[in-house]
Structure formats: C-alpha cells, structure tokens
C-alpha cells in the first residue's frame, strides 16, 4: 500500500536528469547525483546523527515554515544556485532521508557566504547560516570530495590561520601572489612591500611580513595545542592531509608533541 523508504529514495535519485536537477527539471537543488549514488549510507546516517546531537543544533534549527524570507535576503541566491530555505528543509527531513542532506553537503552548501542575513530574518528563529557552518564542518571531518575541492586553493590561508592565528599576511601580496586582480596600485605596493611595511606606525605590525602582526612563539604554541586537543588537526587531516601535517611539524618546532 505504501512505498518503502528505499523505494522512495531510489525513485527520487532516478528522477534526477543528466544535469543533476531534481523535480523534473524545475529550479531547485543541484545534486551531486553520481556521488550520492555511490555514497556510503552508514556515513550518511552518521553525519545526520552527529549534526542532530551537536549542542548548537537545538538553537539553530526549529522548524521551517517555508516562508522564504531567508532566501529573499541571501546574497549568493542572487548569483548562484543556493537557497538557505532548501538547506533548512533538507535538515528537517534528514533523519528520514539522510541521502538528501548528504547530496546537499557535497557541493551546494559551499556557496554560502556565512553572512547570517538569513538568521536575522527567520520568523521561526532558524539559523540557516549556522546549519551550513555545521554541515561544512561535517564535510571536512568526513573528508567529502567537495570539501577537498573547495579547500585546496585555500590551503595557504588555512595553514597561516592554524599556525599563526593571522592571515592575508603581507607576503601574500608579492607579485606572484593570488591578488593580481586587485590592480596596478596593489602591484606597486607589492614592489616596495618591505619599505611600506616598515613604515606602518604600529610597533606590533611594523616590518612583519609573514604574519599580520608579531605573534609570540608561546602564543602560537598555545594555538596549535588547542587545535590538536579540540580535534581540529585530525579533522583537517581527513580533507587536506598535507596541511594538517605541516601544522603538526610547526607545532613540533614550538614544542607541541604530535
């Protein structure tokens, strides 16, 4: 009389078109369909359990009334296929259909700007941006392909923040650094970076090139210890192994045991 859950899921996955669009091609969620088909259901279920057991979950998720206020104010929605309402909806149904959450985690969520405009306007007090942050964290922890793809170009920033607690450091403005589209003014500045940096009138900033300000070794040691003890280094290892190992090496140099 009723379709089983697995029949329902098979039927939904089968209805994705070649471009990965669901709901007969109507605008909606763009799935990483192939990955989801190959995905490990145990991992999918574990992700849902972890998200729902998180101490933030009961503050971030209540129940979506589908009003769309969040999507109306969402910056990425104006430019790419991303809607915070969809995120909350998928979280709402995640227990019964973990595949839906998993598919969304595999690409969709990485468009979020984390501006929290959605949280401010939700009449049901949901925090879609907060849910996305939790899901990104879970994607990194479980080493999802999309997390690797999204974070690879970001490796240097990740390393800088994890080891020094600072980033967008002056040495990232050299002529071969990733800010060439900031124009000729920036290029001129890059040519005389050391002189310009030496002339900054704040003693903790003046002359620092590889960090944003002078950071004590002891401070960096504490930071790396926190990341190790809180499980961040292990988590990053699942997605960007090289970065995590470099952080561990930096920690060892400062006296943090591996």
């Amino acid at each position: 009389m009723y379709v089983t859950k697995s029949e329902k899921v098979t039927s939904r996955l089968g209805s994705l078109n070649e471009d990965g669009w669901h709901y007969s091609g109507l605008p909606g969620l763009q799935w990483e369909a192939e990955n989801a088909r190959m995905g490990d259901r145990k991992v999918m279920k574990r992700i849902v359990e972890e998200v729902q057991a998180d101490p933030r979950f009961e503050d971030f998720y209540h129940a979506c009334i589908n009003c769309g206020n969040c999507t109306a104010v969402c910056p990425p929605f104006r430019l790419v296929d991303f809607a915070p309402r969809i995120v909350v909806q998928k979280v709402m149904h995640a227990k019964d259909e973990p595949e839906l959450l998993y598919q969304m985690m595999d690409q969709y969520i990485w468009s979020c700007f984390q501006c929290y405009s959605c949280w401010e306007v939700c009449p049901a007090q949901n925090n879609p941006g907060g849910l996305v942050a939790m899901l990104k964290e879970s994607a990194v922890k479980h080493g999802l392909t999309s997390a690797k793809r999204s974070l690879e170009p970001y490796s240097k920033i990740l390393y800088k923040v994890m080891t020094t607690g600072t980033q967008i450091t002056p040495d990232m403005h050299s002529s071969n650094a990733p800010f060439r589209d900031w124009g000729g003014g920036k290029a001129d500045l890059a040519k005389h970076l050391r002189e310009e940096r030496a002339a900054v009138a704040v003693e903790t900033l003046a002359g620092t090139i590889d960090k944003s300000w002078k950071v004590d070794d002891r401070t960096m040691k504490e930071l790396i210890t926190i990341e190790k003890e809180a499980g961040v280094t292990d988590m990053v290892k699942q997605t960007l192994k090289d970065v995590a190992e470099m952080v561990e090496e930096a920690g060892e140099e400062l006296g943090v045991p591996k």
């Binding site: 984390q114 990194v140 990740l158 923040v161 607690g165 003693e203 903790t204 930071l223 809180a230 961040v232």
Partner: peptide, 30 residues
C-alpha cells in the same frame, strides 16, 4: 597592543568548516 594574541580563527570556521565549537571557544577563552 599585545603580541600574545591570536585571531579568533573563525575565518577558518566560517570560510571552510575547518574548526569546531570547542576549538573556537578555547581560542576565545585563551
């Protein structure tokens, strides 16, 4: 103006999910 300061490291959290609530809280507390 202290050199014994780290950023909040939430850039990594919001940007890339590469932190967690315990780490962010501990960085804040330190």
């Amino acid at each position: 103006d202290d050199t014994n300061q780290t950023s909040c490291t939430a850039w990594n959290y919001y940007g890339s999910g590469t932190s967690n609530p315990v780490a962010l809280s501990a960085v804040f507390a330190r």
